[in-house]
Amino acid sequence: MEILLQQIINGLVQGSVYALVALGYTMVYGILGLINFAHGEVVMIGAMIAMTVLQALLTAALTPVLAVLLSLLAAMAVCMALGYSIERIAYRPLRNAPRLAPLITAIGVSIVLQNLAMMIWGREYHAFPLPFNSTSHQLGGAIVNDVQIAIVIIALLIMSTLMWLVHRTRMGRAMRAVSENPAAAALMGVDINRVISVTFMLGSALAAVAGFMVSANYGIVHYYMGFMLGLKAFTAAVLGGIGNLRGAMLGGVLLGLIESLGAGYIGDITGGFLGSNYQDVFAFFVLIAVLILRPSGLLGEKLAERA
């Protein structure tokens, strides 16, 4: 029982990490219908910047709380600038191109960011200098620590903020308009380019937060960390129904739970024939099953036959 509870907590934490990253994917997809494959690398850059700034501030003997906040802000600022530039350079000129063209530039951007990070921060792993001791709490026999609790809360908080932003503000209305019909939105006086830029910057700021939380949780930063994370988060976003904010959260948490329960119990279920080495197979099978029953993900809207 304790073990089951612990596995559920593990899944929730892991799932919230996926959700944090998945929200960024889904934001961009919701507005543009474009998979921003470079999103995982933006998360990595966010983590790197946060680590560097945090390190510098801590050696400058700033109070831990201030140092953490400032490094997070710095990471967000850099990532926003990065997101803006990526959109301007690699995506905007291709808006009318065949739909796979921006996919290739996205892959190009990924490779460039990865190798830039390797040149700047080196090939080795870095410790993430979190200045607090993350205390552990007992919860019915299971153990959970502060950082993990923070991750779950922050993921929920960000999701609700985004929901509010999209559904209750002027900017959000413009975003929904662009998503619905860009031409009509433009005719109604919406500055499409500005809306898209803002969306990218928002998504990238989220990536910075995700990068910070992920590295605080695992304690290490590496220039290759974005790839796998991005892939899992993208899967989560699709599972929940890409383009849907609540879907990203649901998909992320679900994927986390599937993975941890899968890894924990797959051996018992199959009588030892399959082990935790089939964890990802299990996750992908669930994904495929969900998509066959609901071709647009759990919460996704049914896509029109043609845009």
């Binding site: 543009l32 219908g33 474009l34 995506y91 291709l94 808006r95 009318n96 065949p98 739909r99 921006p102 662009v178 860009p182 031409a183 499409i192 898209i196 896509l303 029109a304 043609r306 845009a307």
Partner: peptide, 11 residues
């Protein structure tokens, strides 16, 4: 026509 659908992605 295609220009009007931004990114033309939802085919």
């Amino acid at each position: 026509q295609e220009q009007e659908t931004v990114y033309d992605a939802r085919k």
